[in-house]
Simulated assay, not measured.
Amino acid sequence: MNATPDETAKVLRAWERSASGYDRQIAFFERIWFGGGREWLGARAAGRVLEVAIGTGLNLPHYPAGVTITGIELSPAMLAIARRRAAELRRTVALLPGDAQALPFADKSFDTVVCALSLCTIPDPATAIVQMKRVLVPGGRLLLLDHVASTWPPIRAAQWLLERMTIRAAGEHFTRRQLPLVQAAGFEVVEHERLKAGTIDRVHARKPELST
């Protein structure tokens, strides 16, 4: 189902409000929940890299030196922090405002597309994944990291309850699964890891060579 302008605007408002404190707020979860995920993404990135919903640029330290990086982000406030981080790291990064659901790039523009901890809030994740496929070259890599519905029913029930608040407040989902959307879009799954009682997904997928 396509996202409405109101849904996208709600997510934008939420990130604009939280941008200044985001790095501080997520630091605890980075240690105990997402640990190693950003390094996992960086180790698999190659060539021309597009990071969708780059946020404050927390992945930037983990990309190898030989890649070229383009980042797109809905929130101008988050993007401003990412620009400062890139400058501090002395990394040349093209950072642009834009919507993951309508990527402003030509077909087959990138060798790798990365999206970390963002498909949980993008209003129409299926459309975003189709857009990611469109901008990848045939044989290109899709690298995803996100929190998803747990494999353990008691945790999944708690996630569902939490969503009753977070979806209304900021459009954030805890019971989504990105892997079925990746498969439905026609990607070939290369690696898939589920961690932390199945609440964390790491996905490395490949656009088929014969794809247009």
Rank of each mutant, 00 (worst) to 15 (best):
R194V: 11
W152C: 00
M165Y: 15
Q183G: 05
I54D: 06
W33H: 14
R156Q: 02
A102P: 06
H192N: 09
H204V: 00
E30K: 07
S150C: 05
R206Q: 15
E51V: 01
L12S: 09
T4I: 10
E172V: 14
G71P: 09
R17W: 12
A169N: 12
V130W: 15
R31S: 15
L50D: 02
Q25I: 12
T199R: 06
L162W: 13
G37A: 04
D6K: 12
K207R: 10
I81Q: 02
V52Q: 03
Q159C: 03
V135K: 08
Q25F: 15
A128N: 07
M1C: 08
A19M: 01
L58W: 04
V93M: 01
G198D: 06
V203F: 09
G36A: 08
L50W: 01
S150N: 02
L195H: 13
G37M: 00
G139W: 08
L58M: 10
A9W: 04
T121K: 03
R13H: 14
P104C: 00
T199S: 12
D124M: 05
M132H: 05
R164G: 13
L162G: 13
L161E: 03
A184D: 14
G186L: 01
L50T: 03
T56G: 02
E51M: 03
S75N: 04
L119D: 02
L210V: 11
E209H: 11
A77F: 07
A19T: 04
M78P: 05
P5A: 05
R31N: 13
W160G: 11
T127D: 01
W33F: 14
V182D: 11
K207A: 00
K10E: 00
W152T: 11
L162M: 13
G47M: 06
Y22F: 14
Y22D: 02
G66W: 01
P180R: 04
P125V: 09
A9G: 11
R168G: 15
L74K: 06
P76I: 10
P123Y: 06
A185F: 10
N2E: 14
A45Y: 09
R176N: 15
L179D: 05
F29T: 12
G55C: 03
V137D: 06
I122Q: 04
H192P: 00
P208D: 09
L145T: 00
L89A: 00
R44M: 03
I32E: 10
V52L: 04
R31C: 09
A102N: 11
